[in-house]
Structure formats: structure tokens, C-alpha cells
Design a protein around this nucleic acid. Structure first.
Lengths: 126, 126
DNA sequence: TTAATATATGATCATATATTCAGATAATAG
DNA sequence: CTATTATCTGAATATATGATCATATATTAA
């Protein structure tokens, strides 16, 4: 009688087996999780959303969100590390832009899914 | 000279104005953020992904992820609270299923975007 | 060169999260 | 009824995260 950690009360072995074949592997879950984590903070989400329409500098983003430039800079670093944004320098100013091209599509889907106001610009018909 | 907190160095007022009109409002950012937060944990992500294909009970999910049933139960509660999963009881067993219908589509987009292995079942052609 | 501006960075701290453990429910079997 | 199984729940703890502050860097102006 081994004291193994396998009490093994798997109710449906077939389901677990199927899931093992189809479900997300831990590595991909980690990668995708990191992406979703980037979108999980309201501030970062608003940054990404703002960059859907135009490139903006740190100053602009801080003004838009109403937070300190340092805070925005920290958020941007995270987004940069994940490859979600990139910047170009023009003199002293760094302009940030979005890197992925299907982020807008993803946000639209997510907004539908969770009942948030969809992509702005399509609402508020007078 | 007022000691106001408005140093107001908005570099591009036009951009900020445009962003204000188009960008995500704080409330929606919060709502969408909560959804993304649910997908931000690798464990929850794997749960959601597994439920794309079939309903599963707590036991099954715990076995699939290799974690305790209590941990899975806590995660499921969060997902339930957000309306992402629902359950049906069959005797002692609770079967969990996905509620939104476009989650698979969203995951596929996200996987493309961040370079993770896409929807399983479409890979590994022999 | 020095000064000023825009941004980046590191340390710190308060809060949020996830897991574990112990115990509580709910359903069924005997 | 009691025992057992599957799941839920709350408290406690450890870790992760985000904001702030002080300081560092980079670019331009003077």
C-alpha cells in the first residue's frame, strides 16, 4: 500500500482522457495567461484601447487616464515586454503604438461576451 | 499662482481629445478587465479551455490540472460569479459547462496573437 | 557646458490573489 | 438513522501586483 498522492478518484476517465488530448497544455496556458493578464488591468486595457486608433505618447496617455506618467510608464513597460506595444522616438517624445493587428477584433468579442460597451464609435447614434 | 495639481503638460491635446471620445470608458474597462482577469490565471484558462469541448465535474478538472479539488472549486466559484460557467447537478456530482458561446473564437484569436499553441485538435496532423 | 523636458527605472508599501487546510453541506447508500 | 462521497466554504498564509516616490537617463535648448 503505497502512500502515493494518487487517491485517483477520477469520476470520468474518458472525459479526462479526452480533455488531456484537446485542452490547453500548461506552457500555452502560461503564455496566453500572460497576455490576458496584460488586459486584466483597467488602466492597461484603456491604454491598449486608446492605441487602437492612434499612436500616443506617455504624457497623452497619462492625461487620458488621469494617472501619473510614472504609473503609465510602468504599465507600458509591461506591455512592451509582452510585445503588445512598441515605440518610436521623436526628439524627447516617445510615441507608443499597438503591435498586434487583431487586438481590436478580440476586444470587440470580449465586449460582447461580458456585456461591456462595445468598440466606441459604433455607439451613440443620435 | 495656484498650486493646483494641473501642471497640464498635455503634449497633444487633439490626440487626447480624440482618445477621450473613442477610448474605453472606465466602467467598461473595469467590466472587461474582470473578464480578462478570469482568463489570466493559467489554471482557470485550462479549465475554460477544457470546457470548450465537454462538460466536466470538479473531480475531473482537478485530475486534469493536477491540483486539489478545493483549489478547482475556488476557481470555479470565481468563474461562476462572472457568469462564465454554470453547473447542473446529477446526484452528488456537479457538471460544469461554459456559458458564453464565443469563448472558443476569442481563445483562437488570443492564441494567434500571443503565439501560443492554437486550439488543440487542429494541430498534430499525423 | 548647464538647464529643462519626457520618460524610464528601482525600491517600497499596500492591496489583491491563489493555495492549503479544516470544517460544513448536500445527496445517496446501507 | 449513519456513513460515505462530492463539493463548497472561510480563514490563514504566501506570493503577486500596482501605485508612489525618488532618482536616473536621454534629448534638446540656451
Amino acid at each position: 500500500m503505497n502512500n502515493d498522492r494518487c487517491a485517483c478518484r477520477i469520476v470520468h476517465e474518458d472525459k479526462v482522457a479526452l480533455a488531456r488530448r484537446l485542452a490547453l497544455d500548461p506552457a500555452s496556458a502560461q503564455t496566453m495567461g500572460n497576455f490576458f493578464k496584460a488586459c486584466a488591468d483597467p488602466g492597461r486595457l484603456r491604454i491598449l484601447h486608446a492605441l487602437l486608433h492612434q499612436e500616443m505618447c506617455v504624457c497623452d496617455l497619462a492625461a487620458l487616464l488621469g494617472v501619473s506618467e510614472s504609473a503609465v510608464s510602468h504599465q507600458l513597460r509591461l506591455l512592451r515586454t509582452l510585445g503588445l506595444v512598441a515605440n518610436r522616438r521623436d526628439g524627447v517624445v516617445l510615441y507608443y503604438r499597438l503591435v498586434p493587428d487583431n487586438l481590436g477584433q478580440l476586444f470587440t468579442l470580449a465586449a460582447e461576451l461580458c456585456g461591456a460597451a462595445a468598440e466606441a464609435g459604433e455607439e451613440a447614434l443620435p
